[in-house]
Simulated assay, not measured.
Amino acid sequence: MTDLDPAKRAVVFAYHNVGVRCLKVLLAGGVDVALVVTHEDSADENIWFESVISLCRAEGIPYITPADARAPELLRQVSDARPDLMFSFYYRHMLPADLLAVAPAYNMHGSLLPEFRGRAPVNWAVLHGASVTGASLHEMTVKPDAGAIVSQMEVPILPDDTAFEVFGKVTVAAEQALWRVLPSLLAGTAPRLHNDLSKGGYFGGRKPEDGRIDWSRPAQQVYNLHRAVAPPYPGAFTEVGGVRYVIQRARLPGQGNLVALSLPQGLAVLDGAIVGVCGDGRMLTIAALSADGAPVTAAQLQAHLEGARA
């Protein structure tokens, strides 16, 4: 890709691992990144991902961290950069119409559009038990994730994959999807595939409280919830006797895993191991459980369960 026109200028809105990897693709492709718009890390968030700011500092790329994507000052700064193209790689704010009008803009979304449009697409895909997902580069419009698709890359979701593991695959897929289409994108010959909005659907952001377990649900649904929010996300949790227990690691054994004993739904200790009994009589085997950030042993859980029932 060394023969790409180095005069092509871009403004890049980027954050997270996808932001870092896709920004590196643009640099490797000879794109002149005139400005990066990113976020300051929040002290209230578990920052387990790579830093776009660190990459900008290492590469000498100007960057800004505006609090409001609709601020007139941001529009002026982006316009002054005179971009030929704009890219959004996991930037967390919606870009308004006047900003999108500055130059053709492309967004990298973490699903196979039109599936799982909106927020937290990897987490939602795992929660819904999808067996495949990927990354989609698409034209940006005011309506989110609605523009024509220019490149996609597919990855599998294995039965025991957590959202964190799937996100790693999607990050590589995003890098590959951008690398593959970048020459034609800069040449103005990139494909434009229909993004059929009659399929799939929009999903909102997720909060830690959304990880609350309903043990009356079938075991596969409970397991999917665990996989979707397992660390480094906040985790699936349940409360017993005023204590919030968070599942750190769990597995769902095969279909023959039925509860022969009259165990109540929820956390239990069986043969010295922690399990989670679900509404269809199947159990999750829980390898690691915590409360208030500290590991909980089977003996500690058993003592608490007996005390809560007393």
Rank of each mutant, 00 (worst) to 15 (best):
Leu4Asp: 02
Phe13His: 07
Val18Tyr: 14
Val20Met: 00
Cys22Val: 04
Leu23His: 13
Leu26Met: 03
Ala28Phe: 02
Gly29Asn: 02
Val31Lys: 01
Glu45Gln: 14
Asn46Ser: 12
Arg57Lys: 06
Ala58Lys: 15
Pro66Lys: 13
Arg70Ser: 15
Arg70Cys: 14
Gln77Leu: 10
Ser79Thr: 15
Asp80Lys: 11
Asp80Glu: 14
Leu85Gln: 05
Pro96Ala: 06
Ala101Ser: 05
Ala105His: 05
Met108Thr: 15
Val132Trp: 04
Val132Thr: 05
Thr133Ser: 13
Lys143Thr: 12
Lys143Ser: 07
Ala146Arg: 11
Pro156Val: 02
Leu158Lys: 04
Phe164Met: 01
Val181Trp: 13
Pro183Gly: 12
Pro183Ala: 04
Ser184Leu: 05
Leu185Trp: 02
Leu193Asp: 05
Leu193Trp: 15
Asp196Ser: 14
Ser198Gly: 08
Gly205Lys: 01
Glu209Lys: 13
Gly211Asn: 08
Leu225Val: 06
His226Trp: 13
Val229Lys: 00
Thr238Glu: 15
Gly241Met: 09
Ile247His: 04
Arg249Lys: 14
Ala250Leu: 13
Gly256Tyr: 08
Ala260Met: 08
Leu267Val: 00
Asp271Leu: 11
Ala273Gly: 07
Ile274Glu: 00
Val277Asp: 00
Asp280Cys: 01
Gly281Met: 09
Leu289Met: 12
Ala294Met: 06
Gln300Ala: 14
Ala303Gly: 03
Gly307Lys: 10
